[in-house]
Amino acid sequence: MFKGSSPFWLNLMYLPALLLFCVFIFYPFINGLKISFTNWDGYSQTFSWVGWENYQRMFSDPNILTVIKNTLIYGVGSTLFQNVCGLLYALLLNQSIKFRGIVRTIVYLPVIISPLIMGFIWYFFFQFKGGALNDIVLLFQDEPLNLLADPKLNVWILTFVNTFQYMGIAMVIYLAGLQSIPSDYYEAAELDGASKFGQFWNVTLPLLMPSITINVVLNLIGGLKLFDVIVALTNGGPGYASQSLSTMMYKIYFASQDAGYAASLGNLMFVLISVISMSALVYLRKKEIA
């Protein structure tokens, strides 16, 4: 439409978005960096500069490795399960079956529920006393299961709940990708003698790479900053067994009134999410068919 550089007035259209970015993202990020070098408590008007003390404290914290491991499990685990389940549902619901519109709605429905509410719903299922699961377990044994207090299981329960809530988004994106693949490719593959699995592996999967890229990056970002579900189900406990970086940062800021240390944790979470999501984006974009 335009030759050469864009007209000056057209570039002004970026200003509202740029202003919003600076006010709500760039400024808080810079302010968070500044706070991480102070001993601010989050409330008082005075604070002192402490240099790298908060970062030294963070990397010497005996709980930080557990928290980082949990954060990675929430991010990578949710990404894996959401994409597998979302793709399976998309493949099934892309077929001409009865009530597929109703099933699509049911699978997508949890997405519109608040994550905190979703966490409380599942809490009533898993809770130690009076939980729906233990009501069934007590029919067969005398002692109920305290799954949410088990450090070996509660992280995976949280990952499952997050997967259950958001696999509907992955399903919708995969459905859009499947419906954009021309049927000619499948007809040609069938004429060449390709099996159903061969058609999926050599036709469907390569042409779904843009959808896979979108889903993986979105799921990684969402899982790595998981917060609401953890607060509702375990509140990070027992101890630090199910804490993520986001819940640890929240706890330290509001419970311990240590905004400087909380800001350093927030910066670590920013670096972790940026490195992992950008690495996944670059890798998957290379796999896409031009």
Rank of each mutant, 00 (worst) to 15 (best):
P7C: 05
F29L: 08
Y283I: 14
L116Q: 09
N134A: 01
L92Y: 03
L245P: 15
F227G: 09
G51L: 04
G168Y: 04
N146I: 02
W40I: 02
D184I: 01
G222T: 03
K286M: 02
S180E: 01
Y123I: 02
A263K: 14
S48Q: 15
T247N: 09
L33E: 02
N235R: 15
Y166R: 10
Q179N: 11
T38I: 08
S48A: 12
K34V: 05
P182W: 00
L88H: 00
A149I: 01
D192L: 06
L191N: 08
A17E: 00
L226M: 14
G239R: 12
T247G: 09
I112G: 06
T213G: 02
F120C: 01
I102F: 14
N267I: 13
N146V: 00
R57W: 01
Q179G: 07
L109G: 07
A176Y: 12
T105I: 05
S180R: 14
A90W: 00
I35T: 14
L92R: 05
V76Y: 08
L265V: 14
P206L: 00
G236E: 03
K3G: 11
N134P: 06
Y14Q: 11
S195F: 07
F8W: 14
S195W: 12
L72H: 11
Q95N: 12
I230V: 15
L80T: 09
P206I: 00
G130M: 00
I102A: 13
L10D: 08
T163P: 11
L15E: 01
V217E: 05
L109Y: 12
E190D: 07
Q127G: 00
